Simulated assay, not measured.
Amino acid sequence: MTTSPRQERRSALPLPLAHQTVFSFRFTASPRGARLARRLASCQMDAWGWHHGTPAHDSVELVVAELTANAVTHGRVPGRDAELRLSREEDGHVRVEVSDARGERLPEARDAGGEEDGGRGLVIVAALAKEWGTVPRPGAPGKTVWAVVPAVPIRG
């Protein structure tokens, strides 16, 4: 029996699985792509045992939401995808990495007391993450913004 192209595409998606320690997903540099990346990160956290409503799950989901929103707003290059990568660390942390194609536009956390609209997403990331930063994107143009989010180790 042959599989339809639709089934092949579906099986090629990176499904959230408990046994994988790294989850990676390329998404279109659009608000819809950022939303999908956030939802898949939420599913992966749930698969790892950090369920919706737990501090680790909600912190990672919010960090992913902020970093992917920044990638599609400030790092978008037409025709280039962005990428989300989650890594479950043995020391009780989850590393979030979001890569985009614009290396010349580096993020900076703004003062939360300013009067301009927006620009406070990285203040939220800094508050939730143990540390965060930016590095050049390996093997491609652009940058990767990363954050290390504390997560209570799963008892299993």
Rank of each mutant, 00 (worst) to 15 (best):
A69V: 02
Q7S: 07
A34F: 00
L62W: 00
P136A: 13
R120L: 11
V22L: 10
H19E: 12
P153W: 12
P55E: 06
V63C: 07
R105A: 12
G121N: 14
S42H: 08
R137S: 03
A56S: 13
D58Y: 01
L86P: 03
F27K: 02
A56M: 12
I154G: 06
E83W: 00
S11W: 10
P78E: 05
P138G: 04
V123D: 13
P5F: 06
M45I: 12
V72M: 10
R155H: 09
H57N: 09
A140T: 08
L40D: 02
L86F: 03
P14T: 14
Q7F: 03
D100H: 00
G142Y: 05
T3A: 06
T2P: 12
A18M: 11
A147M: 08
A69Y: 02
G114C: 15
V60S: 00
R95Q: 15
G156K: 12
A29D: 09
G75L: 05
A37N: 01
G119P: 01
L106M: 10
E115L: 15
Q44V: 14
A12Y: 07
A112L: 15
S42G: 15
L67P: 10
A71V: 02
E89P: 00
V63R: 01
R39C: 06
T68N: 04
Q7Y: 05
G103H: 02
G118M: 11
L67N: 05
I124F: 14
W50V: 03
A34C: 01
L36D: 11
S87Y: 06
E104Q: 11
S42N: 04
V148M: 13
S4Q: 06
A37K: 00
E66S: 05
T144Q: 12
A56K: 03
P153A: 10
L36V: 15
L13Y: 11
A65T: 09
H52W: 09
P153R: 08
P138T: 02
L62M: 03
F27Y: 09
V77G: 02
E61W: 03
E89N: 12
V123W: 05
V22F: 04
S59F: 01
F23T: 09
S30M: 13
G156V: 08
S24M: 06
L40N: 07
F23L: 12
E83L: 03
C43W: 13
L13F: 14
G114M: 12
G114L: 14
F27C: 03
R9H: 11
G142K: 06
P31V: 09
L128F: 05
S4P: 03
G121M: 10
T68K: 01
V77N: 02
T28A: 10
P107W: 00
R85G: 04
L84I: 02
E115G: 15
A82N: 10
A129L: 07
L122T: 12
G156D: 10
A18F: 09
A109M: 11
V145S: 08
V60K: 00
F23M: 05
H51K: 07
R6K: 07
S59Y: 00
F25M: 08
G118Y: 15
A34H: 01
A47Y: 14
